[in-house]
Each structure stands twice: as C-alpha cells, then as structure tokens.
Design a protein around this nucleic acid. Structure first.
Length: 464
RNA sequence: GGAGCCGUACCCAAGUGGCUAAGGGAGCGGACUGCAAAUCCGCGAUUCACCAGUUCGAUUCUGGUCGGCUCCUCCA
C-alpha cells in the first residue's frame, strides 16, 4: 500500500506523490523560543517525527526543515500588546537573543529525549531577515502591499483565493474580540503585517527599505521554506491552530510572491487536551493546588518519575488528527504498556522461523502506518503479535529504542547488587518478609527488576 | 456571529455500511508464590451520547437534540 496522507487543503486522504520522485521535502512550523515547550507542543513534533520516519521507512529521502522563531511578535497571550520575546527578556533580565538561545537549547534537549529525529535544517528567523525583506519586495513589486504608520501590510483583498486552506468566509469573520484593539490602519480586517515599523521600544530591530523595524510573524516561514525547499515543495505541517491564520497567510504571501503553488500537502496535528482544554505556554509557571504532580513540560514529567518515551508511546496510541486527553492515569497506562513491550524476548517470538507469517504481519503493520499514519492501529497490531523481531523492525518508525531497551541478555550485576540479593535471600530463608520487601524496594529503586520464581530469584535491570 | 472537530467499556484509545467493535492500562478469576511483589494464562462493550431518517442492514451515511473542544487574537 502506498503512503496516503490527509491533506487539509482537499480535506481528503491522498496518495503521497512527491514533486521529485523518492524525495519528500518537508517543512514543519517550529517553536517560538520564549519559554519551554509544553507537552502539547511536543505532541505535534512527535507527529511530525512519525511522518518523517514513515516516509523514510517507505524509501523516501526526507529533506526536513523546521524553523526556530527567535524573533518576538506583537501581542502576548494576554493580548496586552507586549512582545513575547521581549517580555521574557525583561522577566528574566536577559537580552532577547539570550532568551532565544536558552529556550532553543531546551527545546532540542526535549525533542532528543523523545527520540525525535532532528530536522536536517533548523533555520533561525533572525538569521533570515534578508530573505524576508527580499520576499516582501517581491510582493511589493507584484502590487500586494501597502504601507501605513504601523508597518508594511499584505492586502488580502488582492488575493483572489485568500483563505482557501481554512475555507474562510471573510465577510463572516469577526473583527476580533472586544478586548482586542483593532488596527485602524489596516484596509481589511484580514490584512496582516509583513514588516513592523515605528516600534521605538522594541529591542530586536533591523534596517529595511521601509525603515527600521522587524518582520511580521508569517513571513519567516515563507522565506525560509522557499530558501531551503524551493518555491513549491511537498509537505507543510503544523498544529491545527495554524490553519486559519498562519498557514493561510503563508500561502497568500508565498503564492503572490512566486506565482507558483506553495505546498502540495498540508498536514495538521490535533491538540493535546489537559483537564478538557488546551495547554498554554503562558500558563506554564502558574501554580496549582492539585496534590498530584503537575505535568506541563517534559522536564516536569521527568521530575515526576516518568520516562520521556512513555509520553512518546502515549502519543503514538492516539491518531494525530484526534485530540488526546492527557492525564496521569493515561501516562501510567502507557508506561505499563511500554514496559510490557520491552519485556519481549527473541526466544519467545511467536513469528520466529515462520517467514510467511512474518511477512503477513509486517504487511499489516505497514499498511496501517501508510494509511495516513495509522500508527495507533499499527501499535495495536504489534501488540497483538507480541513479536520481538516485528517490534525490532518497526522501531524505525515507532522510535522507542526497542532493541536497546529490550535487552536480550541481562547485564552483569554489580557486586553491590549481588550483595543485596544475597541479603534478601537470607531474609527470605528466615521468613523476614518486611526486611526482604525493603531490600526488594531498594533494588527497584536502583533500577532492577526482582522476581521470585520456581527457579529462585531473578534480578535484571529495568529498562523503564 | 462564522469555520471546523469530537462524544466508542472504569481510564487512554483504534476502527468499520453487514464476519467475534483493535490495542494498552485498571479491574476480576486462575497458575505460581511468602494468604506478597513481579510474571504468565483467562474474562471484559448484545453495544458505539440521544432522537429521527436513508438502507435488506448503521456505531459507521443524512438531519436534529444535548454535551465538550479548537480557531476567527500570539498559539502545537
């Protein structure tokens, strides 16, 4: 079965046929590095990683680009007109560049902990201002812009198919909530800024043909994707929230500048919900009265004793186009499930020695994955077979370090551990159950699994 | 006001116009055992929010009701 992907543009699953045979050119909207990524953000990067891996598994060479938004944009989460990067800089008494570097590093640490393959190119917005200005100039030459005291605007009324991705009906769009101050200099409510002007308090600024200022939010993705992948490329990903504004505007400005179709397949990941709603970066630092550990970033999850791959595994069990209800109960369930996967051994592989059965099973898993990244189904099939070799092969997509974690031979135990085992056996012999249980807990705390069977006590290192 | 999504067992969750509605966790029963933990085996929705309609047949299609979520404002 060929790879088919759900295209937001057509609202249908389509067979993936790249513009250049066997090469998939993929652009994913990356993080704005003014705070830690929360686990909802990370879910989207797991989805994009799965896409990357499924394409590679099917023999495509993947050219993966993801931007780092290190330039602030107007308005904070509270809509008070502050720039996020600048607000963070003031809060932490650092320069915006220091803030950006710090959270960029934190972001890549998180993604590597989740076994997310790093895109080959991760361009920073601040290093591509020249490309953005050139793109705006192309738009200007084509007659799609106008300048006000606030900045250079894209005139959406000149773009006939503006809003085609989101199927917007512009006349029915709200002009904004009451508390949002409307920009009076815009000609149309849907017009958006390409280049901000006259912002004296803004720290990050660049010279431009229109005066000193800084780029609008959307232009960086157009400029950098075009630079690294060409004026038309295969797949563009992001969260569902990007459909109506960010991606809509990217399409408008890109296609009006190049007069070429921008992207062939648009893919969007659904939100992770917590307590029935989405997470917000601006609320990461808020306190809670909840007795249970509050999980918002990957680090808080790790601090609460969870393995990042438990979270990855949880994400894999829900389809990327469905909302996922996060809870500690769900995370516990995925941890227990993953532990069981790691306990598979080649010696008890039900498919061992039966090449035909293996191929049938392999086909089923691959078909599920290739059907719009049906990874939840694929994982279900993998679980129903319980085959070491099948998991080992598909770990290329699943990415849970299967072979490494599901150790085939147990490592030699350190003397300290052997001593504890001896002490525990002694305690068991004399029926001192409390003492022996305490020793077992100690071993578990040190990362070992203790089991008492008919052949005596076995101790092996835990992988989770 | 507009656009879109969702509602499947205790929890997470996949899926389909008609074979037994995946998988994981929890739970229960059993084996083993220290009436323990770990492990292993078995069981689990006569039913897919509700009400109509289309159909020989709907959880799956259409319409409505109720409930929830997202976007239209920076956002994964």
């Amino acid at each position: 079965m060929p790879v088919s992907l759900y295209n937001t543009m057509s609202r249908k699953k389509e067979v993936f046929e790249p513009l250049v045979p066997s090469t998939a050119r993929l652009y994913c909207c990356g993080p704005t590095v003014y705070n830690y990524a929360h686990i909802g953000n990370l879910r989207t990067y797991v989805f994009e990683d799965i896409l990357h891996r499924v394409l590679e598994f099917n023999g495509f060479k993947v050219m993966h680009v993801m931007n780092i938004t290190d330039v602030g944009h107007m308005t904070s989460d509270a809509d008070d007109g502050d720039d996020k990067m600048q607000t963070a800089a003031l809060r932490e008494n650092k320069s915006p560049w220091e803030i950006a570097k710090f959270y960029e590093d934190a972001f890549f640490l998180d993604t590597s902990r989740l076994n997310i393959i790093k895109p080959q190119v991760t361009p920073r917005a601040t290093e591509h201002v020249v490309e953005m200005i050139e793109l705006i100039q192309r738009l200007e030459a084509n007659g799609y812009t106008y300048v006000t005291t606030e900045g250079v605007y894209f005139d959406t009324s000149r773009n006939d198919d503006y809003g085609k991705l989101a199927r917007l009906q512009l006349e029915n769009q709200r002009t904004g909530r009451n508390e949002v101050v409307a920009d009076e200099t815009k000609r149309n409510p849907s017009d958006f800024v390409l280049w901000f002007l006259n912002k004296p308090t803004h720290i990050m600024k660049w010279e431009s043909p229109w005066g000193p200022g800084y780029p609008g939010w959307h232009i960086e993705c157009s400029a950098m994707s075009i630079k690294y992948l060409g004026e038309t490329f295969d797949i563009h990903c992001g969260g569902v929230d990007h459909i109506p504004v960010h991606h809509t505007n990217e399409i408008a400005q890109s296609e009006c500048a190049t007069h070429a179709p921008f992207v062939k397949y648009w893919m969007h990941g659904e939100f992770l919900l917590m307590n029935g709603g989405k997470l917000s970066k601006s609320k990461l630092t808020q306190q809670t009265n909840d007795q249970r550990p509050k999980i918002s970033t990957l680090q808080t999850m790790i601090d609460a004793g969870y393995d990042p791959l438990s979270y990855r595994y949880l994400c894999l069990q829900a389809h990327y186009r469905s909302e996922l209800n996060f809870s500690l109960e769900a995370l516990d369930a995925s941890t227990a499930g993953l532990r069981k996967v790691y306990s598979l051994r080649p010696e008890t592989d039900p498919l061992a020695g039966d090449a035909e059965a293996y191929q049938t099973a392999r086909r089923r898993v691959l078909d599920a994955m290739n059907d719009d990244l049906g990874v939840p189904q694929a994982v279900g099939i993998l679980n129903s077979y319980g085959s070491y070799s099948l998991w080992a092969e598909f770990d290329a997509v699943v990415g849970i370090d299967f072979v490494k974690r599901a150790k085939t031979t147990d490592v030699e135990l350190p003397a300290e551990v052997l001593e504890l085992i001896a002490k525990r056996n002694e305690a068991r012999k004399t029926r001192q159950w409390a003492a022996s249980d305490a020793l077992r807990d100690q071993l578990i705390g040190m990362g070992y699994e203790v089991g008492d069977g008919a052949q005596g006590t076995t101790v092996k290192s835990r992988s989770l």
